[in-house]
Design a protein around this nucleic acid. Structure first.
Ligand SMILES: [Mn+2]
Ligand SMILES: [Mn+2]
Ligand SMILES: [Mn+2]
Ligand SMILES: [Mn+2]
Lengths: 215, 215
DNA sequence: AATTAAATTTAGACAAAACTAAAAATATTT
DNA sequence: AAATATTTTTAGTTTTGTCTAAATTTAATT
């Protein structure tokens, strides 16, 4: 498995969660910032290696073998993110790029030792679940804040958008994983919502509300 | 800097310490397990990038720019080795290969944070010095055990050969960095030496004695 | 159903890094 | 100094992953 192949597998995995019946060539190209023709080439190769099923013009999906591989890469990515935040004091908006490289270091022993060193975390710094050695992961039945009814107390458990800009904006608003949130009022005109977060009343945009997972 | 270019730079650095007036094409090929013709190609590219000075048939050496780069790679390699041994409980014979990959993760912040996390170690698990952020490193005036006179108490501070086989053999003999060694007798016939190591008397071969650094 | 638009694939080219085989330069022997 | 051996470089391929431009297929509109 080359780094490039791994990056494709991971992207197909992520896209599969949203469109399980086949991932579009263009969608993959978009995520990898490459061209559709390159994706077609790679899909053929991955199909050859039997990690992906691919029929011309029909999109791709992971085989069981491919799924196992993809989850390993996700496991490595998320464990390294935890390491960077918990042990090296990185903030949650800085870790993604570095984990993007570290995820390609392939040593079972390394990753299992790291897992143990971190005390087997279930979630990464963005609230995403970390597959264990067998590929199993905890799934919370989280919802977007925008779907929560008025006056219901909930807890922030993850982000949908994990771009640095969004994460830094959350930092500025003092919203972190674990924050207690209650929606006080929804303004239908401009979709702003008035909320109480950790006892402080503030106003959030719809863009925030549709990118924050709560429970 | 690609991974391949970095591997070449690091090898040229190591070979320079032994032959400072120019590193042979064949020597580089040997270390990298590649062919001399590939080395020639790469030397041209590295010379183009001004990290190496290279004249046809004359061997190569690092420019100042190349030296700085090479020391950064060595720094990363050795810090990761310390991490693996100190934090993840790897043994000293298991870390080299993994560090060979980790050394290519290029983030200044990552490596400086790691350095701090490890409390700024001066030496790696094999007794080799770790360059600091500025590229400076401590150098011990170590000698090979084979050069030490009889009855002189010295301390094991490093290994010349850091292959897994040698390191495992040292483990088996209970020789570690820090072991106190005194040579009791040298047998000129077969070059075996009788030594006292940490109060225990034992016999070592010349091959061991010429690969152990003491001080 | 025919036309247009969008998505996807093919064909052909390119750069990086490796290889083999042959040629050229340097070193070592005789 | 000439002959031989060794080292190094050149020339020509190969593989991987990318690209552009053109062709093809599928989807959306009229
Ligand atoms: Mn990646
Ligand atoms: Mn994450
Ligand atoms: Mn390396
Ligand atoms: Mn080392």
């Amino acid at each position: 498995m080359t780094i490039s192949e791994e990056n494709y597998l991971k992207v197909i995995y992520h896209l599969s969660l949203v469109s399980p019946k086949g991932v579009n060539t263009n969608a993959i190209a978009g995520m990898l910032e490459t061209k559709a023709s390159s994706v077609t080439d790679m899909l053929k190769k991955l199909a050859e290696k039997e990690v992906v099923t691919y029929k011309k013009y029909q999109g791709a999906s992971l085989t069981n073998k491919g799924l196992i591989q993809a989850k390993k890469i996700v496991r490595r990515h998320r464990l390294w993110e935890v390491f960077l935040v918990e042990k090296l004091q990185f903030s949650w908006d800085e870790v993604h790029e570095i984990a993007e490289e570290l995820e390609h270091i392939k040593s079972e022993k390394l990753i299992n030792s790291l897992d143990a060193f971190l005390e087997f975390p279930d979630f990464d710094p963005h609230g995403d679940p970390i597959p264990n050695e067998k590929g199993e992961m905890k799934k919370l039945d989280k919802q977007l804040l925008s779907e929560i009814p008025l006056e219901t107390l909930c807890k922030c458990v993850g982000v949908k958008d994990s771009s640095a800009e969004f994460l830094q904006y959350l930092d500025k608003q003092k919203i972190t994983l674990g924050s207690q949130i209650k929606i006080l009022e929804k303004e239908s005109f401009d979709e702003l919502i008035r909320v109480e977060i950790d006892k402080k009343v503030m106003v959030l945009s719809n863009k925030i509300a549709t990118n924050l997972y709560v429970q």
